[in-house]
Write a protein that binds this DNA or RNA. Structure first.
Lengths: 405, 405
DNA sequence: CTGATTGATTTGATGACTAAATAAATGTGT
DNA sequence: ACACATTTATTTAGTCATCAAATCAATCAG
């Protein structure tokens, strides 16, 4: 017998093509789809019918939409069925947890927010907290467990492409990512665990400052610097997920560590208050150092307070040096400053821009402040989960020939 | 009329599959190919016949190879026709030019070496020099101009994915890469211009220390530090080809610039000789500082000369810091030290390894010394040219339906 | 000279996709 | 109201890459 193993059961490529189009489109006619995917009418309609049968498309009854009347036989109209399932995106930070449930297009259906409390910082409790958040989200979205197609969780630790974090001496990374891929495997068919800054990068790339950009870095700049790196259109991991960890900043002049920009503003301001090193009539001098936050300092700087401005300039100098490193290693077009601190960053960024304008060998990256707010990571997690669902929906739904022995 | 544009004229996928197999195999039978590519006999043989007709395969007449006799009908035997064309790989350094012509498997057929001389450092002369080298190589390989399928040139400048280098103030990069992609367009259907360190990375990945590795950095460590970076199995460019340029080393403690390791050894040794800061009975003290080369110092260190060893240790300290930066930005599994200096690097590397063993957050990269010698870049250029030819051979040869209006 | 064995060739599906003909549903002009 | 152009849907044949099974060819072992 001449053995001949068929390749893994294929499916019409047209299904994937048409689904990808539909996922990104609103309501559309068969003709719209046909010209978008460049297939013949027969093939396109065949695919549309199949996708509708699988529940991924809805055929809209209104053959002739209101107002939009034209001559000829009325076109069949379809729309992607964004409620065919839900996705879950979670930012599982060190002391807080932000979660969102969304439909298959990423429209948010429900949110949760939990403060974790430093005293519950164990692998077991963290796993449980994430699980509870997921259950909550599904319930609040009015769906049940089986509807969750994809879950993505962001953690403040390096994560490799399989969702595994490297082992670290003090066990911090293991606590932040207590084998979440395995722990969540029974909650959805598709699970992805990812570094938080990488998810910020995804968020910025999908609908933020870096939309359409192939080379950029998302700098999570609040409590601790972390970066999500996209080069040549791809998010980078590295051997252990360590790309962008930036420990090397410890050894860069005038940076001295991966401490975040907000944190620096806070510390310098506190120091200055304590040292009495401020204009006594200024706004900063009046504040209690213990209660001061980095964001406040930057806000004051934006309002023109001279003392705060001096600190903001100092922070800008650090930012310039960080960007210089990023530029020389990753050559990005854009560096997006993300995270909680991003509202009052104007002066900081202007300072950095000015310092970089003349000092780089070639075109310096644009530094922009994220518009996505403190939710970037969770938004990125949702986007990643949507993408996961999109790329695997047919694997899950399309009938496979019964796997024989 | 219902318009229906066909997608770009397709070709049987089996052709590509079978060709890829054949390119990497020696002599083989139809059955060998069949089981390797997992297609049926009919499909495989159809593809083999087509490829033979296109000149990419030779059918070997010896149906029954000597000694290898077996029962049954004799199998048809084929071999990839590595002489169906040639490729050219060139290392166009600042003051030297190394070139190789090779067959489609990368077996070297001819070499050229030219010293360029600093006085001829203009865009025009460099373009001409590369052209002359190519003509020479083709002639020495005993072929003619039409046989060159692919040319790859490595230059000491950032190069983006289209072969373009960014504009630099002093014009150095423009001189190093004087629009070579355009200049060479009429010499072969496939042309690629690439950064020299990136080609070193390709060489190490194809047949060097990083074979089979998905995350590594090739560090060109002679005259000036440059790095070729492979992350997640892909060579990185960045927006302007600047990935791995390492200008940021200017600001890293104890590194202070992208000066190469060999260069540092030389300078420190010269300084020490001049300052009389050496054991007068040692080997170094006897040498004339002007004639000293970095390689010599490292050789002496390898032979146990205490003064040279001190310098090598110093160089190792720098290397450790450089690797620390690479580790924290790219998270490689391996860092390969390439280039001319690599012979006496033992002590340097040992020092670096020791310093890194305890100081990194997670698994530190293996530091290894390249075995590919001073030719790495040219070898990488050949490998890149072969790959270029392999991936586009059928585009060039397979008959396309006449392009109509 | 008869099988057994190994591989080549032939012949007939299958399935994704295209291409062209035909049918349906609507507006327009007389 | 009725022919007719227009737009889209549906049907019916093809084409092409690939597979599957049957048949043919060439060899060795007895």
């Amino acid at each position: 017998m001449q053995t001949a193993q068929r390749a893994s059961a294929p499916r019409p490529a047209s299904l994937d093509t048409v689904l990808t189009y539909a996922w990104g489109a609103g309501e559309f006619t068969a003709t719209d789809a046909m010209s978008a995917v460049r297939l013949t009418r027969s093939t396109t309609i065949e695919a549309l019918d199949t996708l509708a049968r699988l529940g991924l498309l809805t055929e809209l009854p209104n053959a002739r939409a209101v107002g939009d009347y034209r001559k000829g036989r009325p076109a069949r109209r379809f729309a992607f069925h964004a409620d065919a399932g839900i996705v879950i995106g979670i930012d599982a930070g060190h002391v807080h947890l932000d979660g969102m449930a969304a439909d298959l297009r990423g429209t948010v259906l429900a949110r949760v927010h939990t403060e974790l409390g430093i005293e519950h910082d164990t692998a077991e409790e963290r796993r449980a907290a994430v699980g509870v958040a997921i259950d909550d989200l599904i319930r609040r979205a009015g769906r049940d467990a089986g509807d969750a197609l994809a879950i993505c969780v962001g953690v403040p630790a390096p994560v490799d492409r399989f969702g595994v974090s490297p082992i670290q001496r003090d066990g911090f990374w293991q606590r932040m990512n207590p084998d979440l891929v395995d722990a969540l495997a029974d909650r959805a068919p598709l699970v992805r665990v990812e570094n938080d800054a990488s998810l910020a990068a995804i968020a910025e790339g999908v609908a933020g400052a870096a939309a359409g950009c192939e080379n950029y870095v998302a700098l999570l700049a609040g409590g601790r610097l972390g970066s999500g790196v996209v080069v040549d259109g791809r998010l980078l991991w590295g051997a252990h997920g360590g790309v962008g960890e930036m420990r090397a900043l410890d050894h860069v002049d005038g940076v001295g560590g991966a401490v975040g920009l907000g944190h620096r503003a806070k510390e310098w301001a506190r120091e200055a208050i304590r040292d009495g090193d401020l204009d006594p009539r200024g706004a900063l001098a009046a504040l209690r150092p213990e209660a001061l936050e980095g964001g406040t300092v930057l806000e004051l700087a934006a309002q023109g307070d001279p003392d705060a401005m001096r600190i903001a300039t100092q922070v800008g100098t650090v930012l310039a040096r960080v960007v210089r490193v990023l530029h020389s290693m990753y050559d990005p077009e854009i560096v997006v400053i993300c995270g909680g601190v991003s509202s009052g960053m104007g002066l900081v960024v202007d300072t950095a821009r000015e310092l970089l304008a003349t000092s780089l060998d070639f075109e310096s990256p644009r530094i922009v402040v994220s518009q996505l707010g403190a939710d970037v990571v969770a938004k990125g997690a949702v986007a990643a989960a949507v993408e996961l669902a999109r790329s695997h929906a047919l694997d899950l739904l399309y009938p496979t020939p019964a796997a024989g022995a």
